[in-house]
Design a protein around this nucleic acid. Sequence first.
DNA 1: GTCTATATTGTGATAGAC
DNA 2: GTCTATCACAATATAGAC
Lengths: 186, 186
Amino acid sequence: MTTADTSVRRQIINTADRLFYKQGYNLTGINQIIEEAGVAKASLYYHFPSKEDLCVAYLKLRGEKWSAMLAKYIEGVSDPREAIIKCFECRSKYLLQNDFSGCSYIRIIAEMPQRSAKINRQAILNKEKQRLFFIEQVSKLKKNSSTVNDLANTIFLLFDGATVQCQVYRELSPIENALKALKLIL
Amino acid sequence: MTTADTSVRRQIINTADRLFYKQGYNLTGINQIIEEAGVAKASLYYHFPSKEDLCVAYLKLRGEKWSAMLAKYIEGVSDPREAIIKCFECRSKYLLQNDFSGCSYIRIIAEMPQRSAKINRQAILNKEKQRLFFIEQVSKLKKNSSTVNDLANTIFLLFDGATVQCQVYRELSPIENALKALKLIL
DNA sequence: GTCTATATTGTGATAGAC
DNA sequence: GTCTATCACAATATAGAC
């Protein structure tokens, strides 16, 4: 770590994470973040040069949280087919815990069409990590490498489709639909 | 029409439609809309009581534009399997024409987690119209009505998954992936 | 490193003339 | 129905004391 992980910094990023994800990035002002974090405005700008940089840190944190949650959820699972299904069930739990706020990476991009290079890089990085998980699991499942990517991409499409539809409809049935589809194609 | 379709009103809604979709709803101010539309601020508020009402009109217009584009694209197509594939190809064309701005209904919901009742209603209405299209096509394809909804929902998941992934990656390959999957399951 | 106070610009919305 | 002028407030960001 090049930057000190002070308690103030932690307070800021945790509050930003909560508010950005719950209310949306553009609807969350710096003022609300410092107020709820209990820190001064200049302290925020000491740790994060701009709101954009805070956004990158937010995306990074979201990625780490999801990876940790998924890892814990599939701990000890050796069957790749079961791991994939558990990943969707984990998503269901995640959305339920987070008031159906959807995928933070997709939402940031949806909010900022003129995305900055920094934000774009982090969002894509996070999404590619998700795709990689499916590729790894499918690789264990299939020997024929030519169909591995195709199957993994299909699963990835179902994953994102279910995530956004759950967000739109505020219910878990799209995940159920995705699980039904999964059991047919796996 | 209860409201007169004056040229000023048309200018406002057309400009709002273009800017909301290109820049995002929250990043587009009333000031920019009236400036680019070439009308006065009070004129906008004469035709639309609030920005929220303008948003509902925007969603409605987007829905009509997509329906019209799709109808034209599948004109004369009787085979339901071909109609579904053409729908995805139409999506590809739509995203390419619109700078990969994704689905306007999903984006509005992604931008406003605390969505108003009016906006929520219109967004869901538009999404349900998309689902209905797939249900209709699959109904022509399958006789067994118990599997119709499942298959249509799977296609709908692929449709939304491909749309958001194209938006994120700014490329059409997710639609290609969805088409590959479609050809396997149809 | 953290604070208070301030600068500057933009936001959605309205009053009142014509 | 359309306009100009203005309201009250919130936005991101910075200066300078401690």
